[in-house]
């Protein structure tokens, strides 16, 4: 990003950088929404599948429910990280 900014600022008349920055901001704001939306798809499916299977396991073996729940939370944490990275990218694109 910074490299592109430097390149463009050297190539283009300095008076027009404001317009360029505005265009970049608009593009970033638009892509921020896509970034988060796309990042949420996979983890959404994954967490749904994971929790569904865990409930199935708990219903089959209620005596193992504690262990299944612990493992489920760990699995959710790992899966959720992907969506959260998407959210961070969203914040970075939108506000940075």
């Amino acid at each position: 990003m910074e490299a592109i900014a430097r390149l463009t600022s050297e190539l283009i008349d300095p008076n027009s950088t404001d317009v360029l920055a505005a265009g970049k901001n608009a593009a970033a704001a638009a892509s921020a929404g896509y970034a988060y939306g796309l990042a949420a798809i996979g983890p959404g499916i994954g967490i749904g599948y994971l929790v569904g299977k865990s409930v199935e396991a708990m219903a089959r073996q209620p005596e193992a429910a504690g262990m299944v729940r612990t493992t489920m939370f760990l699995g959710i944490a790992f899966t959720e990280a992907l969506a959260l990275i998407g959210f961070v990218v969203f914040i970075l694109l939108k506000f940075a």
Binding site: E2, A5, R6, S9, E10, P14
Partner: peptide
């Protein structure tokens, strides 16, 4: 930008 010198011209 955030405390770092980004460009000098």
């Amino acid at each position: 930008s955030s405390g770092h010198v980004v460009q000098v011209r």
